[in-house]
């Protein structure tokens, strides 16, 4: 089992302390308050596949995403990436670097995810430099060009600033940056929810193409069941921090087991109900 599955999420738990400052608690005699944002969640992802976590706001899906890439630590439980525990504090700095290099994240906001003062070339070169992946300026430029082409941008875009691009193009830059360190696991946190539909389709198709070409494994975070349907191999439904249902995509949508999942599917707007086929 451990050999087949690439990503193992085991009994993940994350608790946030929402208490008031201690002085206020003392004066008003209020108890500490906690929120279990992620509550005993376990699932696995096969190598080269997409696992989608679906849930509404407050379901804990973004917290899991942040734990999976190491931006946040778990309260208990662990995440294994190809057998390595990212949050293992006993690992050496070099071992940590090796794991970090293998995982990346694509963020939700195409506006906040790129430093507005940096040229695109520098944004893409930063991971290359930090992980010492290229030798010399020439090799660096070469790799930056390769990345730009990989996501459908042009080589000359390296000299421009993020604000010169549209939302969809910025999301492509974000994807190129995520690819820079040649990771095999990428967490996509609502990567298209801020984009217009015509552009969303471009970005989703690009992600699928990259998965096919590079054998990437995705953890795909979203609230949109229609997007998940064309993106994910398996789906887990989150509600209030708990994983309430998990199935292969087609089965989950055809025969949801929980009332909550049924309600989610029922609520999704149906554009095709007026027709049997468009295009």
């Amino acid at each position: 089992m451990l050999m087949v599955d690439f990503i193992h999420v085991e009994q993940l738990h994350r608790r946030f302390d929402l208490s008031e400052p201690w002085l206020a608690r003392m004066i008003y005699g209020r108890p500490k308050r906690f929120l279990d944002a992620v509550d005993n969640v376990s699932f696995t992802i096969e190598r080269g596949k997409t696992y989608a976590l679906v849930g509404e706001s407050g379901s804990g899906k973004s917290t899991i995403a942040r734990i999976a890439v190491g931006l946040l630590g778990p309260s208990s439980g662990r995440i294994l990436i190809d057998g390595h525990n990212l949050h293992d504090r006993s690992l050496s700095e070099a071992e940590h670097r090796r794991i970090r290099q293998r995982l990346q994240m694509i963020f939700q906001s195409p506006y906040a995810s790129l430093n507005p003062r940096w040229r695109v070339g520098n944004i893409l070169a930063e991971p290359l430099r930090t992980f010492s992946l290229v030798d010399g300026r020439q090799a660096e430029q070469h790799r930056v060009q390769e990345l730009l082409e990989q996501v459908g941008l042009s080589v000359s875009d390296a000299r421009r600033f993020p604000h010169e691009f549209s939302g969809g193009q910025r999301q492509r830059i974000s994807i190129a940056r995520a690819l820079a360190s040649r990771p095999d696991f990428i967490v996509c946190d609502e990567p298209t929810s801020a984009l217009d539909v015509s552009v969303q389709a471009q970005v989703l198709n690009l992600l699928k193409e990259l998965q096919r070409d590079l054998g990437l494994t995705f953890l795909f975070i979203t609230h949109d069941l229609a997007v998940v349907r064309v993106m994910a191999h398996r789906i887990g439904v989150l509600k209030a921090g708990k994983l309430i249902e998990e199935q292969a995509t087609a089965e989950l949508i055809a025969s949801p087991q929980s009332e909550y999942t049924r309600m989610l599917i029922r609520s999704a707007p149906r554009i095709r109900k007026h027709s049997d086929d468009v295009r």
Binding site: V197, S198, Q200, L204, N205, K208, A226, R229, H233, I271
Partner: peptide
């Protein structure tokens, strides 16, 4: 209009092999 409708993913059908229709470029 046709592109807008076709590029909207639908919860009713499609699977992992579905290539979404895309309108090239941006507004």
């Amino acid at each position: 209009t046709r592109g807008l409708i076709a590029s909207t993913p639908a919860v009713e059908y499609g699977d992992i092999s579905t290539e979404l229709f895309q309108i090239s470029g941006t507004m």
